[in-house]
Amino acid sequence: MILGLIFSLVAGSLLSIQNIFNSKVNERAGSWATTTLVLGMGFLASMAIGLIFEGEKMFNLQNMEPWYWFSGLLGVGVVTCLVQGMRLLGPTYAIAIVLTSQLGFALIFDSFGWLGLEKVAFTFKQLIGVLVIIGGIFVFKFAGARKNQETSKVENAAG
């Protein structure tokens, strides 16, 4: 439990810094060049760390199902949707909807135990918890909205 929370905190903090860095690249190089660079860097780092910890096992991919190869394309879908969403709605609205949808689908995935997840029974308590979190997101995003803050939350290609 605690370990799971710590891993989440680490992922969130790194995402925050990564989004700031990526948005700086994005300002000059555009979103596809940025996405290409970000995913390329992520691949190299994963290979390097994997080789250190697992050695040759990094190249042992016999358990690959064909769809695993295509899963990486989701990252491209994420960038397209975020870029278009922000262009059409502005960053504040777009990001608030993205985060809400993320949580909503998380609840659905847990409840149905899709893709081999351990099923987490859907309860009223969970629904309330998620609604309060979404309320928090909207207060954070809209109450006394700060101008220009959005530049730091542009896209999140590798998340």
Binding site: L5, F7, A11, V38, A45, V120
Partner: peptide
């Protein structure tokens, strides 16, 4: 910045396995 992606994906997977998708996110 992209290099962080390695650790982000790793942490995300570990978190989902330990505490589920909703709480992780």
């Amino acid at each position: 910045g992209g290099a962080f992606g390695a650790v982000i994906i790793f942490s995300n997977v570990e978190a989902i396995q330990k505490i589920g998708v909703t709480l992780s996110i």
